[in-house]
Amino acid sequence: MPGEAAREVRFHVTRYNPERDAAPYVQTFTVPVREGMTVLDGLHYIKENLDASLVWRYSCRMGVCGSCGMLLNGRPMLACNTQILHIAGTDLTVGPLPNFDIIRDLVPDLVPMFQKHLSLNPFIVREDDEELNDPAGEFYQSPQQLEEYLQFTYCIKCGLCMAGCPTLATDARFLGPMPLTSAQRYNSDTRDGGRGLRREQAGSPHGAFRCHYAGECSHVCPKGVDPAKAIQHLKRSLVLDYLHLARKRQPCEKMHGPGQGQPLANIAAPPARTV
């Protein structure tokens, strides 16, 4: 509220400059906080008024881009999505996401996570490349088939689940909740035919079976993706595949109806491909 008096909250922020510091240390800033202020607002206050050298990563300010994941009072959370007075009284600790290397101050190195993600082929895989790259019709998918993977598509790759995962804390090679959830998302998609391609990596010694259902990933996920659920479904499919009990599934066909794979007459031809 405009007229409301500000309350002072001490921000204990982890600082680390690789060119100067041997190890991270904690610096304390006093920030005047009003109702509704997010942690991201508090960090902006510090940068504008107290220490311009503070570094963190952010972009959208509305819990969509997944850039501002941090450890707030010991919990992985999005700084833009978290109001200071909801989690802090007089003190707030702000640190970089654990289980990732620190590049500087509050900036984690997310590259290993995305490399693991990429290793699981997180995209629709089909044999009919021509149709995939230059589609001539729609692929039919029922609402029920959509429900099979829709929840897992809401992942914003913020890395909070990776920071909360206790297995990842001791096994750096564990693929982690985000990449495995992504694998399950594409495995459940009826348009996809790449389940066999992902099987080797997902079922490897550092794959899905390293998860022991601590559930932290689902607790900290800011989008309700429930990675723990996705990983258990992935394990089930890996077991069924191993026992040759999985139902055979072909990637879905193009939609029946007008066109049957041919461009419809009353729709303008797509522009020429540029790549």
Partner: peptide, 22 residues
């Protein structure tokens, strides 16, 4: 240069919200 921020064994015991399953 980066700083290794892996929690190690402390990661089993701390970090994240503590649920019953944890």
């Amino acid at each position: 240069k980066r700083h290794d921020n892996r929690l190690g064994l402390w990661g089993w015991l701390g970090g994240g919200r503590w649920g019953l399953e944890r």
